[in-house]
């Protein structure tokens, strides 16, 4: 079969197609793409469908490369075998992620966000990779990936590279994917013991986020460590709330810390007014939710 036509069945075939026409758009669930009606346009770019590529689909545990086998400070380290990473293929749907046992048990906030994206119908089509590449400031899974210190795997004709998600989403709908490159997987490091997530949407379902907060941390002797707090829909890209994280680091797990972190979060975001909400509300809700999640996590 001529790899330049038809349905690509391997990552290499897909990369070849992207090379031939650099404006080619790689599609999976199409839940964002179709809404924008791009296919109806006369100047619509060529597209390829990634759903037949087996390698892009599914969830598996993979061994941690030895160079990365160190655990975050403060964690209860197991000196013998390095814990595995969880690799989620780019075209894995949120419906699959929502019910996957390893996700539900190890990364409950990812399972939670997967169950809150759009509707069940959307979750059955929409993919994790699609959410990343679409790069909306309101992409629901993104703050969760940020809090979980996820990495993304990118394939290009030169081979594969892995970068932290922190370095992937560069600006409003802008990513680190170069021309001819394909997002192939998301990798999650071993699960942090404390996780929390909250989506504040426009209604209970089929809602776009006004504010999102995701956090993950370790703890030792009643104090927070390795705290990562991420927020969505309050900036052009999902952002770490570093001032709030700093407040928590090494601080006691109590109401005072939560309150202080909430105040820090208030001060470090500059949200905007738009059709869904107001800057004032976003800042207020973000701060209150940060406090609430720290109390409950």
């Amino acid at each position: 079969m001529n790899p330049a036509s038809g349905l690509p069945r391997t990552v290499d075939e897909a990369l070849l197609r992207l090379q031939e026409r650099p404006d080619t758009v790689a599609l999976a669930g199409c839940t964002d793409w179709m809404v924008r009606d791009r296919l109806a346009r006369a100047d619509a770019p060529p597209v390829i469908d990634l759903l037949a590529i087996e390698e892009l689909h599914g969830i598996e545990e993979i061994a941690t490369p030895p160079s990365e086998a160190k655990r975050p400070a403060g964690a209860d380290a197991d000196p013998t075998t390095p814990p595995p990473l969880l690799r989620i293929g780019a075209t894995t749907t949120f419906g699959e992620i929502r019910v996957d046992r390893r996700v539900v048990e190890g990364y409950p906030i990812l399972a939670e966000v997967a169950s809150q994206i759009g509707s069940r119908q959307i979750q059955n089509r929409a993919t994790l990779g699609g959410n990343l590449v679409n790069a909306s400031p309101a992409g629901d899974s993104l703050p969760v990936l940020l809090a979980l210190a996820a990495e993304v795997e990118i394939a290009s004709p030169d081979g594969r590279r892995r970068i932290p998600y922190d370095a992937f989403h560069l600006g409003y709908r802008e990513t680190a994917l170069g021309p001819g490159e394909l997002l192939t997987a998301v990798l999650l490091p071993p699960p942090p013991p404390h996780q929390a997530f909250r989506k504040v949407g426009t209604r209970a379902a089929v809602a776009i986020s006004k504010v999102m907060v995701a956090m993950a941390a370790h703890s030792r002797q009643g104090r927070w460590s390795s705290m990562r707090i991420a927020a969505g829909s309050v900036a052009p890209v999902p952002m770490r709330l570093r001032a709030a994280e700093k407040v928590c680091e090494g601080a006691p797990i109590d109401v005072e810390t939560a309150t202080e972190a909430a105040e820090a979060a208030w001060g470090e975001v500059e949200p905007i007014d738009d059709v869904r909400s107001t800057a004032r509300y976003r800042r207020w809700a973000l701060s209150r939710v940060v406090r609430r999640l720290l109390l409950e996590m």
């Binding site: 426009t202 209604r203 209970a204 379902a205 089929v206 809602a207 059709v275």
Partner: peptide
Amino acid sequence: TYIVPTFLD
């Protein structure tokens, strides 16, 4: 963007 209740609401 014009928000009407769903069954969950």
